[in-house]
Design a protein around this nucleic acid. Sequence first.
DNA 1: CCAATATCTGGGAGCGCTCCCAATTCTTGC
DNA 2: GCAAGAATTGGGAGCGCTCCCAGATATTGG
Lengths: 339, 339
Amino acid sequence: MKRWTLEDIGKLAGVSRSTVSRVINDHPHTSPAVRQRVEQVIRETGYQPNSAARSLASSQSRILGLVMPSLLQSAFADPYYALVIQAISQACIQHDYTPSLFLFQNAAEEAKMSQRLASSGLIDGLIVTADTIDSQFVQMIQPYDIPFVQIGRPQRESASCISYVDVDNEAGAYLAGSHLLQQGYRRIGQIATLHNTAGQDRDAGFRRALNDRGLPIDEALIALSSFSEASGYRAMQHLLPRQPEAVFAQSDAIALGAIRAIRDSDLRVPEDIAVVGFDDMPLAASSSPPLTTVRQPIARAGKLAVETLLDIIQTSPQPARHIVLPVELVIRASSGAVS
Amino acid sequence: MKRWTLEDIGKLAGVSRSTVSRVINDHPHTSPAVRQRVEQVIRETGYQPNSAARSLASSQSRILGLVMPSLLQSAFADPYYALVIQAISQACIQHDYTPSLFLFQNAAEEAKMSQRLASSGLIDGLIVTADTIDSQFVQMIQPYDIPFVQIGRPQRESASCISYVDVDNEAGAYLAGSHLLQQGYRRIGQIATLHNTAGQDRDAGFRRALNDRGLPIDEALIALSSFSEASGYRAMQHLLPRQPEAVFAQSDAIALGAIRAIRDSDLRVPEDIAVVGFDDMPLAASSSPPLTTVRQPIARAGKLAVETLLDIIQTSPQPARHIVLPVELVIRASSGAVS
DNA sequence: CCAATATCTGGGAGCGCTCCCAATTCTTGC
DNA sequence: GCAAGAATTGGGAGCGCTCCCAGATATTGG
């Protein structure tokens, strides 16, 4: 297949380069007859404009970068990331943008790439999922003027000047905690992940739920974990001797691990210990028992992140956009509310 | 931050555009003194070459596309894909290439994008994970002359002329089957996924293992499934009434679903039914019981796919490269071999 | 029917690089 | 000490597009 150029197509259609360009970019001031003829030729030749030339001339690449800094091997296995990636990829394609993926293993890689990402012009904007407390990535790209949006709340100091799309983790955890209280449980444990902002917010919501009912927080019933099944299992093993009646796990993966730990000790869910998760992953509905959990709209968040970023690119970075999506409690068997 | 150009850097270093270009691209014929001066200026300014201009002039983008056609929402949740993506992203960055991700939902999207991917010059090469029997994607890009590598064996008709990186699914399933036979099991079931080539190969290996021991295949003990936990659960439910002594599940996700189904029927693994999986996902080692499974080198396969693709790009598409990686059996508790 | 305006079209300039060739400078050998 | 050759360096051309302006053509009103 020949590599056609605008000029070629123009010649074949009997018009100039510029006219073909106008047709392709849907600019006004082209007569319907000409437009049709050109479109015909484009269809017949299978012409595709050269993206490099386009980028160079228009100084925009129509490529969006998705950056996930310093993920542990296991952390990335959480289906959460797969869903985020999928949603963003979808949204990009829908808006005729190309998604590029940057998964970094360590700070050195981040540093090396941040400059390139920000100033080679390869990428029009960045979506960053850097809500771990110690991630430096956002600080590294802020000095550059590349548009970016964070998924998840940034750390407090910088939150106001950074655009982000988040889900209402605090409210979700509040719902989860309140639900367990409503079921009559009093010794309620939590498996928490405090090294990212989502975990902190969920922790805050959980505590507020207990406070609102006048229940003191028993710190011995709070176990720390990372966002993985195995780590949820371990955390639950620590909690078991303290005999909680119920546990709020900060993610579904953690909840699944916790359930496994409970069953391995020959206890039943929810009869002996009730469990609530967070995320509503596909797995949650079909686990044994089906998991009561807080549904967060991951796909919508991803889509909104892309659209917010495009808005920033097309209009102006100021003011920073802050979007917080509502979540809902999905009640299933694991919390003892349904048989 | 100013957007520097080669010309700017040249002026600052007292040399010409061309010399700076030579330094950046590590071409020979530059005096050490000049080279050092230029590198100094580049460091001070933070200059990054404009990728669009580079692509246009050199007609290569240093972008690799990763295409995953028509994945169901749930299929993508399988950590397998996350690991593949991670490995490929890593390998790209290592080789100074940028990975782009194309997840397609349906055939229409595939058709629309295949042409663009193949002939806009945006992408230097493609890695395709299209081993489902009915995927048309490979056929759609074959007419173009864009280099591509498939992960997983292509369908028979086209396998010889397509470069691919695969793992030895047949041998792995043979190992799994033989292992169960060696444990003394005779009524051995299989949960199979036949709509992709990996599943077919695993099926063949499993059957060969049984055949080699003179055991007839009981088709009633073979249940069909897709690559998901939930679907493994359902398949196992079908198998349970037939009372298999052991089950070979074609993936770890399926195996986990099967184990859940077995336990939900108040049977034990491995005492009542032994289970072997395939993949050796991170989860497999820490499940209850730990899963005997066939370890496939996903990260290595991803890395090799990238490197094979780069080799094709840099040298020639001919002859087609065929790489089949060995797998190994990892024996854990679920097959009854260890206490 | 022609001037005035609105609509359409063509071509020059330029985006920031790479590639190539010619010009310049530096070596080296006899 | 000077020619022949090798190592450096500079600048033109061009990659395929977009953007803009000027010229051509069509449309309208008086």
